Lab assay of single mutants.
Amino acid sequence: MASDGVVVEIGKVTGSVGTTVEIPVYFRGVPSKGIANCDFVFRYDPNVLEIIGIDPGDIIVDPNPTKSFDTAIYPDRKIIVFLFAEDSGTGAYAITKDGVFAKIRATVKSSAPGYITFDEVGGFADNDLVEQKVSFIDGGVNVGNATPTKGATPTNTATPTK
Score class of each variant (00 low, 15 high):
S3V: 03
S3T: 03
S3A: 15
G5S: 14
G5L: 10
V6D: 10
V7E: 06
V7D: 08
V7G: 04
E9R: 08
E9C: 05
E9Y: 09
G11N: 14
G11H: 08
V13G: 13
T14F: 12
T14N: 07
G15F: 05
V17R: 09
G18Q: 08
G18A: 10
T19W: 03
T20R: 05
T20Q: 03
V21A: 06
V21Q: 05
E22C: 09
E22R: 14
I23V: 05
I23N: 03
P24Y: 03
P24F: 10
V25H: 07
F27T: 11
R28I: 08
R28W: 14
G29H: 07
V30K: 08
P31N: 05
P31D: 07
K33S: 03
K33D: 02
K33P: 04
N37F: 00
D39T: 00
D39I: 00
F40H: 08
V41H: 00
V41C: 02
R43H: 05
Y44Q: 06
Y44I: 13
P46L: 06
V48T: 04
V48R: 06
V48N: 08
V48E: 03
V48C: 05
L49D: 02
L49R: 03
E50N: 11
G53H: 11
I54V: 04
I54Q: 02
D55S: 07
D55H: 07
P56F: 11
I59F: 14
I59K: 14
I60F: 14
I60H: 12
I60N: 10
D62V: 14
D62R: 14
D62I: 15
P63Q: 15
N64G: 02
N64V: 05
N64D: 06
P65W: 15
T66F: 11
K67Q: 12
S68H: 15
F69D: 02
T71E: 01
I73L: 04
P75N: 05
D76E: 03
R77G: 06
R77T: 02
K78C: 04
K78P: 01
I79C: 02
I79Q: 01
I80E: 15
V81D: 01
V81E: 01
V81K: 01
F82A: 01
F82W: 13
L83R: 00
L83I: 00
F84L: 07
A85V: 14
E86I: 00
E86Y: 00
E86L: 01
E86W: 00
E86H: 01
S88W: 15
S88D: 03
S88K: 03
G89L: 03
G89D: 01
G89F: 03
T90M: 09
A92W: 15
Y93T: 14
Y93F: 08
Y93I: 09
Y93S: 13
A94G: 13
I95Q: 08
I95L: 04
T96P: 10
K97Q: 08
K97S: 11
G99Q: 14
G99L: 11
G99A: 09
F101C: 04
A102D: 06
K103P: 14
I104W: 14
A106I: 08
A106E: 02
T107Y: 10
V108I: 10
V108E: 09
S110Q: 09
S111L: 10
A112R: 13
A112D: 12
P113N: 07
G114A: 08
G114L: 07
I116G: 03
D119M: 07
G122P: 00
G122A: 00
F124Q: 00
F124Y: 02
F124M: 03
D126F: 00
N127M: 02
D128C: 04
L129I: 14
V130Q: 09
V130C: 09
E131G: 06
Q132R: 08
V134L: 03
S135C: 08
F136Q: 05
I137W: 10
D138F: 06
D138Y: 08
D138L: 09
G140N: 14
V141F: 14
V141Y: 11
N142C: 11
V143N: 05
V143K: 10
A146K: 12
A146V: 13
A146G: 07
T147Y: 13
T147S: 09
T147H: 08
P148T: 05
T149Q: 09
T149W: 13
K150C: 12
G151L: 10
G151W: 11
A152R: 11
T153Y: 06
T153E: 12
P154A: 09
P154I: 06
N156Y: 11
N156T: 10
T157N: 13
A158Q: 13
T159G: 09
T159H: 13
T161S: 10
T161C: 14
